[in-house]
Amino acid sequence: MLLEVKDLNTFYGISHVLQGLSLQIGEGELVALLGRNGMGKSTTLKSIMGLVSPQSGTVVFAGKDITGWAPYKAARAGIGYVPEERRIFPELSVMDNLFLGIKGGRISENNDPHVWNYERIFRHFPMLKERANQKGKFLSGGEQQMLSIGRSLMGNPKLLLVDEPTEGLAPLMVQEVRNVLADINKAGVSILLVEHNLKVALSLASRVYLMGKAHIGFAGTVEELKCNDEARQKYLEV
């Protein structure tokens, strides 16, 4: 297992937002974490990343117990974070946004095709190349999403936590983002995807977790979910 989350309990003040949550992601897998609003999907990603500290439970990544590590340490261990609000740096250019994603500021010199560099990012995101010198704040929503994904890829993560990447995007752009995620996964990066667009999520993922309030209600393959009307009704339909 690349990531093993076990019995995680997270609180916001006195509200118990994750109650004994467990999930696993294997090497190279793309796993979707689905459910209605306010169930704790984003909090799950933040707890893994160290942006909120879980009260108990463990997060083991690539054999290391990273529970409660500062976000920068989790990032250095090999986890990339693409937040819901994209959170690109508005005053920095596209190039500089990507630059800050590089761990330690240096790209390794060898021409290993698995290493992410500007060239490879621009191959995946041609629209970023055209806007390389523009400030982040002048990008469209879709472009910001691409930049946010590209920025975390510059750190060569083994696992990418992606939160609602297609939210608020035009249908054409949704398709673009979907394809990019598929490509990245094919290139060997494992992905934990939180996504509202069921069609997108199920077309990408091999396995699915459905969240009820603060816990995992269903875990299984996409095929198993398709056969399970009860789980779909209980956790997905509004």
Partner: peptide, 14 residues
């Protein structure tokens, strides 16, 4: 300059 607007995200980049 990035941290002025979003220090948490800078942190999450390593």
């Amino acid at each position: 300059r990035a941290a002025v607007s979003d220090r948490e995200m800078v942190n999450a980049l390593g």
